[in-house]
Write a protein that binds this DNA or RNA. Structure first.
Lengths: 340, 340
DNA sequence: TTGTATGCGTTATCAA
DNA sequence: TTGATAACGCATACAA
């Protein structure tokens, strides 16, 4: 096995091919300017040596890199991986690579990644930040690296951002339940430190009162997180309410909660949507694959990633770039969990 | 807003602080050799300018980078994200960053990423390859970039690899079912182009015959993939078997299949484990959160990633490095789906 | 068509 | 303690 020697450079290739360094570079970058014969010699030498361009040197020379990065909150959440997939495709189309960085919801790790990416002079950064107002984001901007905020927004317009209208999503969910004839409903979700949760509840409430239904008939069942386990626990509390006063429908702040709720009901022998209609949020793969297929609010996830990548590239390439706050529209997908 | 100007360099800092470029470098790399006064001046200049080291230049100079990468098959699969988490922690401990690259099970995208990473001269690559025998892996090696194969193995010993003993996993699952008194069982999984599926079945079969049970009492129900939907379809076929001949237990090649199977049974009014005991594989988060908590075979996922990162770093740093094939031992987690 | 020389930003060596 | 200079590998402008 060969020792871990220094990799070969254009200089080595030139020496082996018996030409100058500049000619090798021409073969790489403007092959038409090189005679077929010398080109063949050079290409042979490259193969012999297993030559690979040194991207650091190229980048140093060029002043910019050929990579994008997406710093995401939670790699286990299908929402973010779908966003990443959309960004990946846009990057691929632009001839760039996309690296994923998993902050795992930790501000310090997010900061480490951002610092490293800025030092790398990546062409652009997409980030779903732990806190959209944290100064680390401004630091990135100050250092001249294009940055787009994904799935969060900021009041100021210092950054491009792409997000989904969560208030509208909440509205759609509740309007659907009202259409189905429900007049007592529950909102299940929390903690309300999460902006998305607040917005969805807000939308739910305004749809509710717009329909002329009394506020106290939309009860809020708070949870400590957006997980299956929390959903089950919320289900126990919900079904603990006396039948007369109990909601006939529930809108969950995400699908994991809805799946937990569904499990809890089926374990307890209740039926969906007979005893309780359920709407989730996110339309994750498991939503349609659930025992009772779940009505859910779908966000254009890949689209979100694609658009974010396009914006960051525009910021990188276009001197006349203007920051944009893109808001996508969610969509209700009705399935058996609300349709009898 | 400032124009997207060229970022500041040590030279700019030196000019602003009124010292030489070498002194700025000393402040960065050997601050003790600089007098407190000049150091303060230089640091002030850095702050004023918002100076950020250029990693490309450092790397060009140093000949090596400060990043690792993990090229993974499927970012949506919690197995891989847990492996990534383990690798991430090991990288963090070594002061490196870990970038995730999602090949999405496509050989061409995997090849693109590998090529890019080699050009970047990353310090090491972890990869769960589409095909562990593909020559792209050998190309990486030939170019001198340390590479460790994760969750796959190769017969030759040209690479380090970390994997889990899937044959043992299959054995553990079936031994558990036998202990519970089952004498008719099904193996659900496929396609058998996937090495893991073959190995798990192999282990299941040898445990079965070691127990003196007749081969034809372990039926194989093939699937086209390892998804919830496939699991439901397998469930229909399984329950279509006449009650006298029908298996009383099923071992699924992964948890998603098992969850689909579970759903199908509960929809059809059958009980678990009464009508059918179920063992899954992977022990994903949803396994314990299922309506009937799922018995499953757990793999030390984070451990896998941690060890892979350590191996790749050893290969990068240690001239006396010897390739290692690490095989981890899986573990059965018994829950209600098999325990009556 | 090919070769030579320069600079990208950093670090390190050596001289002052 | 500080400064001048060379080198990392590549791409390009320019000369031959």
């Amino acid at each position: 096995m060969r020792a871990v020697a220094r990799a070969y450079s254009v200089k080595d290739v030139a020496a082996r091919a018996g030409v100058s360094l500049g000619t090798v570079s021409n073969v790489l970058n403007r092959p038409d300017r090189v005679s077929p014969l010398t080109r063949a010699k050079v290409e042979q030498a490259m193969r012999d040596l297993g030559f690979v361009r040194n991207e650091s040197a190229r980048q140093l020379r060029a002043g910019r890199s050929r990579t994008l990065a997406y710093v995401l909150l939670d790699a286990r959440n299908p929402f973010f991986t779908d966003v990443a997939e959309g960004a990946e495709r846009a990057a691929e189309a632009a001839g760039l690579s996309l690296f994923l960085c998993h902050s795992d919801n930790r501000a310090s790790r997010e900061a480490d990644y951002l610092a490293h990416l800025v030092e790398q002079r990546v062409q652009g950064i997409l980030v779903t930040p732990v806190d959209p107002h944290a100064s680390v984001l401004d630091d990135v901007r100050r250092n001249g690296t294009p940055l787009v905020i994904v799935d969060r927004t900021r009041e100021d317009a210092d950054f491009c951002s792409v997000a989904v209208d969560d208030e509208l999503g909440g509205r759609l969910a509740v309007e659907h339940l009202i259409e189905q004839g429900h007049t007592r409903a529950a909102f299940i979700g929390g903690p309300d430190t999460i902006g998305q949760v607040r917005d969805r509840l807000e939308g739910a409430r305004s749809a509710w009162s717009d329909a002329g239904l009394p506020d106290d008939q939309l009860v809020v069942i708070p949870t400590d997180g957006l997980t299956v386990v929390e959903g089950r626990s919320a289900g126990e509390r919900l079904m603990g309410i006396g039948r007369r006063r109990r909601p006939t429908a529930a809108f969950c702040a995400n699908d994991l909660l809805a799946l937990g709720l569904l499990q809890q009901l089926s374990t307890a022998g209740s039926t969906v949507p007979g005893d309780l209609a359920i709407v989730g949020y996110d339309d994750i793969e498991y939503a349609s694959a659930a025992a009772v297929p779940l009505t859910s609010v779908r966000q254009p996830r890949q689209e979100l990633g694609r658009r974010a990548a396009e914006l960051v590239l525009d910021e990188a390439d276009n001197p006349a770039h203007v920051h944009e706050q893109v808001i996508f529209t969610p969509e209700l997908v009705a399935r058996r969990s609300t349709l009898g």
